[in-house]
């Protein structure tokens, strides 16, 4: 959209004001009618603005339109780098990096992350973890979980895996056996297939441009 947020905000307020003045002509502020018209006008203006912004937002968060990656991003190397101009971190996608030892076709990749999303929902992950910062506060944020150094530093050896994704998939299936502090994640009966799908989803999610959230994240450089 070619307009900045300030223009949008000012426009919403000014239009509400102008229409408010027009529709309340002739009534004193002490009459309920005055506030009724103001309320109707403002609510409608705000709803219209929300709808316009919704169309614009939906277009820009469509998978593959820049802010939200395509499913095949799971075949790429993802990092989180500081952008001097924006003054915040942005995900960077570069070079090939197979997931579970293979390059997934567009169809396969989409099916895989779809399975991941469905598993994340049906296991109610969001009621302990936060995803993009939303959810429960009983367990770590998963927004950039794919980039977390702990998988390579600790978990890989703990579960006896050869790669990060393998370590993640193994750990997710039996987290109660590999506690990282007093609070353990329960065994949610996640199958091998589901675990791989979750890993793929986390990798895909880490490539979403989240306006710099979380800040200062110390991403795994490996």
């Amino acid at each position: 959209m070619e307009f900045g947020w300030l223009e949008i905000t000012v426009a919403a307020i000014v239009i509400s004001l102008i229409l408010g003045v027009i529709f309340t002509r002739g009534s004193s502020w002490i009459e309920p009618r005055f506030w009724k018209n103001i309320a109707i006008v403002t609510s409608l203006v705000m709803v219209v603005f929300l709808l316009i912004l919704t169309f614009d937002t939906l277009a820009s968060i469509k998978m593959g339109n820049g802010r939200v990656p395509e499913a095949t991003v799971i075949n790429k190397k993802i990092s989180y780098v500081y952008d001097e101009q924006k003054r915040w971190y942005v995900p960077k996608v570069s070079g090939e990096e197979p997931l579970f030892g293979k390059i997934w076709s567009e169809e396969e990749a989409l099916a895989l992350i779809n399975k991941g999303k469905m598993t994340i929902q049906s296991k109610a992950c969001m009621d302990c973890h936060t995803l993009l910062g939303n959810g429960g506060y009983y367990a770590p944020d998963l927004t950039k979980a794919w980039l977390d150094p702990k998988w390579n530093l600790l978990i890989k050896d703990m579960v006896g895996a050869n790669s990060k994704e393998e370590a993640m998939a193994k750990w997710i299936q039996h987290p109660d056996q590999y506690p990282t502090f007093q609070r353990k994640m329960p065994d949610l009966g996640i199958t091998d297939e589901e675990a791989k799908a979750i890993v793929a989803y986390l990798k895909w999610m880490s490539a979403i441009d989240t306006n710099g959230f979380p800040d200062n994240f110390k991403a795994d450089e490996q």
Binding site: Y82, R87, W88, Y89, G212, D215, N216
Partner: peptide
Amino acid sequence: MHNLLTGS
């Protein structure tokens, strides 16, 4: 924005 921030 982070380079300006201190915890305090």
